[in-house]
Amino acid sequence: MLETVQELADGVAARLRSVRLDVDLTQAGLAARSGVTLASLRRFETTGQIALESLIRLAQALGRDADIATLFAPPPAANLDELVTSSKPRRRGRRS
């Protein structure tokens, strides 16, 4: 079942907090290391709300920037036909 925007945001915040604790960083330590204000980090861990640039800075400080870089990566091809189709250039256009 699909999650709500808030559920997704809360999940990302909880996972970031877990990674922060796994590497034994306090909120203040991660804030200092990332350049994100302590207030922004606290708000994120509490509410799931954060600016994208701040989220990227936090991910970089935790060595998890690859997680951000692959956020909208195409899924792997399931078969040869999908691989051939995915390698063809896509047309750009507007969609409603």
Rank of each mutant, 00 (worst) to 15 (best):
M1A: 11
E3R: 13
T4C: 08
T4Y: 13
T4S: 15
V5E: 10
V5Q: 12
Q6N: 09
E7T: 01
A9N: 11
A9I: 00
D10L: 13
D10Q: 11
G11I: 01
G11Y: 12
V12A: 10
A13I: 01
A13M: 01
A14W: 14
R15M: 10
R15D: 12
L16Q: 02
L16P: 00
R17V: 00
V19I: 10
V19S: 07
V19F: 07
L21V: 02
D22G: 12
D22Y: 14
D24P: 00
L25W: 14
T26F: 07
T26I: 05
Q27F: 08
Q27W: 07
G29K: 04
G29N: 01
A31T: 00
A31C: 01
A31R: 02
A32S: 09
R33G: 00
R33N: 04
G35S: 07
V36C: 08
V36G: 03
T37F: 08
L38I: 13
A39R: 10
S40P: 06
L41Y: 12
F44V: 08
E45D: 01
E45G: 03
T47S: 07
T47K: 05
T47G: 06
I50A: 04
L52M: 05
S54Y: 07
S54H: 14
S54D: 11
A59Q: 11
Q60V: 09
Q60K: 15
A61F: 03
A61Y: 02
L62N: 06
L62M: 06
G63D: 05
G63T: 05
R64F: 04
D65W: 06
I68C: 01
I68S: 00
A69Y: 13
A69I: 08
L71S: 12
F72E: 01
A73G: 02
P74T: 09
P74F: 02
P74W: 06
P74M: 09
P76T: 07
P76A: 10
P76Y: 00
A77Q: 02
A77I: 02
A78Q: 08
N79M: 04
L80M: 13
L80C: 08
E82A: 11
E82G: 00
L83A: 15
V84A: 03
S86A: 15
S86L: 09
S87P: 00
K88F: 03
K88Y: 10
P89H: 03
P89R: 09
R90S: 06
R91E: 07
R91M: 04
G93R: 05
R94Q: 12
R95Q: 15
R95K: 15
S96R: 14
S96K: 12
S96C: 12
